[in-house]
Nucleic acid binder design. Sequence first.
RNA 1: GGGCCGUUAACUCAGUCGGUAGAGUAUCUGCCUUUUAAGCAGAGAGUCGCGCGUUCGAGCCGCGCACGGCCCA
Length: 514
Amino acid sequence: MTRYGKWASKDFLNFSVRYRCTVDESSEVVRQRREKAKALADQGVELYPNDFKVSHSVEDVRKHIGKKDTAADDSTFFAMAGRIVGLRSFGRAAFLHFKDYTGQLQAYVKKDEVGEDAYELFKQVDIGDFIGIKGTIFQTKTGEWTLLAKGICLLCKAVRPLPEKFHGLRDPEKRYRQRYLDLIMNPGVRDIFINRARIIRAFRDYLLEQGFLEVETPMMQPIPGGAEATPFKTFHNALGMELFLRIAPELYLKRLVIGGVDRVFEINRNFRNEGVSSRHNPEFTMLEFYAAYATYDDLMNFTEEMFRFVTQRVFGATHFTYQGMNIDLDGPWRRLTLKEALSDLGGIDSSLFNDRKRLLDFAESKGIHITKKGRRGKILTKLFDVLVEPKLTEPTFITGYPVEISPLARRSSSDPDMTERFELFIGGYEIANGFSELNDPIDQKKRFLDQAKNREEGDEEAHYMDEDYLLALEYGMPPTAGEGIGVDRFVMLLTDAPSIREVILFPLLKNISY
RNA sequence: GGGCCGUUAACUCAGUCGGUAGAGUAUCUGCCUUUUAAGCAGAGAGUCGCGCGUUCGAGCCGCGCACGGCCCA
């Protein structure tokens, strides 16, 4: 058996078994629909034509209706297209609802209007098919504006039925795997992704307005840097080169600051080889930006302003509720040091902070198992994650992060063990992380060496040594502050989504299982 | 990684004590030219996630696996 033989045959087996179960030749509904499609084709009907010209969208028609003098006998002619989402047939006439991107409209198809032949064909279309309809609008008895079909044609035959009209598609697994069905059946889903796009656009507009340049830096990096996280590995065949999907764009953006781009940002995907949960997807969207001559303190103020701008622009208010929590973005936001938060909100006696052993005992007593042996900073942040983070519902900046867990941040001028760094929490989620940048190449080298030691001691998330970045730093980086914002989580907050999967169109799921 | 829950018709869900597999929607047939969760009459539709076990007999009980959800780590 070849090296791949076992896997190949196993995968093939899995695939074929599942294929048989899922692509249901046995499903009566699908079989019937295929037969209908074939019957239509046999009658000379083209099942997938592309020559229908649309003159108006549903939204166009709504606007037309909204005009003051649209009369019941309006004679404007519309050529419209969409997917049939409801159908009520009466033998020689039928009402249907069809949907395009802009909305949904009722149409009335009468044998008298479209002719006998066309009506015979129409009787063979199903919910889920795309159709083109030409006609005029009128109001029904109940006052609903309706397209009276003068002509109708099939634009695309669907051979699988849509989910049930009343309950829609509920099964979360199917919703994510077949997001197209989710989008067709559950209107709120579309709104989330429309709002997501608006939020990202508002961030972009704000930063552009402030003189930032938008860039794209490598997704595939020879040395993954800019965060403490486990990367995905890949390989470039022609170059014979190991590469990593980026865990952050940080070191490249800072190279650009060195290159004279004083204000720079990127909105793009990061990849972290970690567990999946309601707040973690292995690929997620990060907004990262850097401003020369700014400090972490400036960025906190900047972040408040930017968040208020985005929220106001997209939702018309700066307060909202997230999962029942009232969250108000009006400033100024609370600022606490890590230690203050741990003692005031976490209930940890401050005398424990410098005693690693007692900290570990305390963690154990709270049922918090610390897997990362070693560094005190890691223990503190772990305790913070469990005891404090969930309590930070109102926007809160946490500052005072120790150097050992902030290898890229500038030391605090007043306390060399601390960094000029903050993290932002809203709704119990970590939303942003920013700091004054470390631009002393000698200190940076020392920090990398410390990290390398941690890596040798088994910390897979420790930062890699990056000589090329040190080289860049030696050419001089101006005093700079930078920040990363977790876009998905911010979208979660603003769309009241309980899981990150609700704001990512195609969240990562394990292989096939329909 | 651990715990709990789920997986039954295309979809949403019932399924009692272990004893022939159910409903609504969708589909099919018939009637119906202003309905809108259209209506009326009838019909078809299932590898009960997968495997093994217990049992005369398993959708149901036990074990294992897969996928998903929630919580914890």
